[in-house]
Design a binder for these strands. Structure first.
Lengths: 222, 222
DNA sequence: ATGATAGTGTGAAATTTTTAACAAATACTT
DNA sequence: AAGTATTTGTTAAAAATTTCACACTATCAT
């Protein structure tokens, strides 16, 4: 389940570290907008709700970005993290499954702002093929193998219903995709060298419901 | 960051366990649909991509649901997990922020299928107020405190832009919400007894990009 | 019945991840 | 220029989580 990742020194990097680094980038950008220039691991930790040592440890996997006695220069740290994560460039993305969620992602400009540009939209529904969504023409899913090459896409987003997710994945794989982000609530199988990530926000509702139930049983609400 | 949860015996339950339990439910439902009746931890582990012991350990937090030498009866296990997580009932949910993502969630029937019913939609944009989305009238966010009571909602979903997330949270809290699932890419602050979960799918794109970069540096694609 | 096979539940071991502690480095003050 | 404040990077300790290993229970075949 938890694929292990390595940095260039071949140390194992916890998956949780990657998630937190993304969080740090987020916070650093917010701080930048406020006009801040420097921040300590202690302050940043506070903002992110984590332990200061953890931040320093997380960063240490990739290098030394701070100045002792001073802290971290916000802009430079942000850039350093992004570079470490391979986010210092644009990633071309194709999306399969132009349903409600697919449309939302196509129109969502957060992706673009973070360097992920959706360059192609695909669906297998004849009624959707040919339609234009967010400036993109929807193509037939079966054309994916060719289109991926043509569009130079490296990442595929799957937003189909679960029963069609594996087929979508197969098309993506056939086209030589390198990574898949699957929003459909089902596992998919893919060769070892293809990165597969699952996004499942139902989890978070489950978890919220569970924690509320616990709080309730402790009488925290009455 | 990782809030610790407890079961009724007051053991700490890892957050990761909850996430996996949600995954198990998903797989069990798929198996049920295929007409399967019984499954072993080994087989289920395979389906979920985890270790069999882990499944048994996860379940042990809540009770003994299996039969030695036999395995787990799928329907009963699924129900038992759902009950353990407090998912054996309907949860009323309100949604704040009727943008692209908000609309997608409002129309998404997966939520309803899992027992989360969106009973109210809110936004602060006068152009959106009064509009009808997925059979719900959009109300002004400032009416949240009253409406939450009225609608008997316990969970709030935030799908506003990040700069308005905290204000949305404040309305929700004022209305006596018990849990918040925040899709906006920003942290929010709330009293201790209110459960806050963050959904951030950009993380998954970051993580995918990073892993691809690593694979690339290992020459895995050429 | 009895033996063989399958498979859970669980305590102990191994691993991973987080937190604490502190030496080393910088800046600021006098 | 020396002393004090900070705050990083890193090693060591602590805590949490995962995996192993196996006793124990059920089923099936003979």
């Amino acid at each position: 389940m938890n694929k292990v990742m390595f940095n260039l020194k071949n140390e194992k990097i916890p998956r949780a570290t990657i998630t937190r680094l993304a969080l740090y980038v987020q916070q650093l950008e917010a701080l930048e907008q406020k006009g801040e220039k420097v921040i300590s691991s202690e302050k940043l930790a506070q903002e992110c709700g984590v332990n200061p040592s953890q931040i320093r440890k997380d960063l240490a996997y990739f290098g030394e970005f701070g100045v002792r006695g001073v802290g971290y220069y916000i802009y430079e740290l942000k850039e350093a993290i992004k570079k470490s994560l391979g986010l210092d460039r644009v990633w071309n993305v194709v999306l399969v499954g132009v349903g409600n969620l697919g449309r939302a992602l196509l129109r969502h400009n957060v992706l673009r702002k973070r360097g992920f540009v959706i360059v192609g939209a695909f669906d297998c529904d004849p009624f959707k093929i040919g339609e234009e969504v967010a400036g993109l023409e929807v193509f037939c899913s079966s054309t994916l193998p060719d289109k991926i090459q043509e569009l130079n896409a490296e990442i595929g987003i799957i937003t189909t219903p679960p029963e069609r997710a594996q087929r979508a994945a197969n098309y993506l794989i056939k086209g030589g995709i390198k990574g898949i982000v699957n929003f459909a609530p089902t596992r998919i199988s893919a060769p070892e060298n293809i990165v597969v990530e699952y996004v499942d926000f139902i989890n978070h509702l489950f978890s919220t419901a569970f924690q509320i139930s616990l709080n309730q049983s402790k009488g925290l609400y009455i």
